[in-house]
């Protein structure tokens, strides 16, 4: 579904990714773990088009998307819930969700009706968002904002979803809820690429995992295989 081949990318003169390759099969959850500065977030940004890969290929559902603007890639079916959530703070919850489906809604009239079913689905998944649908997103708590970010990504009915550090800065109880949602989405057949600091928890939901080191994939394997790797256990899983 998603294929990254030998991608080099970075910011300005500093290259962060030095030939990253990974693959996400349809209906699976793939985890990407590694130390700070290893290039996990940069990988996500290079996939979704927020930065342009200097070299290498990115294929979404067989179609090359490397170098396209992020908005085009989003409309081709890739949703990215970015690090730090990045909800639109001055818009209300429901407007945030509607914008999630921007690519397939009419621009002027009747967009609410066309999005009704998807709204219901997201509200079903996160009842808290329904309660707060008229509230400005900036006034939500961190946990609610994370749910909104995931819900907003779901509104696009994506082929692949990228989740960047969905647990960052969240209370344990909320982290559990986030992971429950990820499991539920997985059960529904959603394809996901997940970057996560809580490597242990990430390996529990993932079908396959990659470990990054200094801009490259250092180790890969199924969670069961990775758990057997002593070195990895010591370095990342604590």
């Amino acid at each position: 579904m998603l294929l990254v081949e030998d991608v080099y990318a970075g910011y300005g003169l500093s290259e962060v990714l030095l030939g990253t390759s990974l693959a996400v099969k349809p209906g699976t959850v793939v985890a990407l773990i590694g130390a700070n500065g290893a290039g996990k977030t940069t990988t996500m940004r290079a996939i979704s088009g927020l930065i342009r890969p200097a070299r290498g290929r990115v294929l979404l559902d067989g179609e090359p998307v490397g170098g396209l603007p992020a908005s085009r890639i989003a409309r081709l079916g890739l949703a990215h819930a970015p690090e730090g959530r990045k909800v639109f703070g001055t818009l209300c919850v429901e407007d945030n969700l509607l914008l999630g489906a921007y690519g397939r809604l009419p621009r002027f009239f009747g967009f609410r009706g066309r999005a009704a079913a998807d709204l219901e689905r997201v509200y079903g998944l996160f009842p808290r968002l329904r309660e707060r649908r008229r509230q400005l997103a900036g006034t939500l708590s961190g946990g609610e904002q994370q749910m909104l970010a995931i819900g907003r990504a779901l509104m696009a009915r994506p082929k692949v979803m990228l989740l960047d550090e969905p647990s960052m800065g969240l209370a344990p109880v909320i982290v559990q809820e986030v992971f429950r949602t990820i499991r539920q989405l997985k059960a529904e057949g959603m394809t996901m690429l997940l970057v996560e600091q809580f490597a242990k928890t990430a390996l529990e939901v993932a079908d396959y995992a990659y470990v990054m080191e200094r801009g490259r994939i250092a180790i890969e394997g199924t969670p069961a295989e990775l758990r057997r790797d002593e070195r990895l256990l010591a370095a990342y899983l604590g």
Binding site: F88, L91, L99, Y102
Partner: peptide, 24 residues
């Protein structure tokens, strides 16, 4: 209109807007 909301979204966070498929 949704276009108007997209205006606002791009102003709040250009990158996040792009991720929604809004061409900043």
């Amino acid at each position: 209109t949704l276009l108007g909301k997209a205006f606002e979204a791009v102003s709040v966070d250009r990158d996040a807007g792009e991720l929604m498929g809004i061409s900043a």
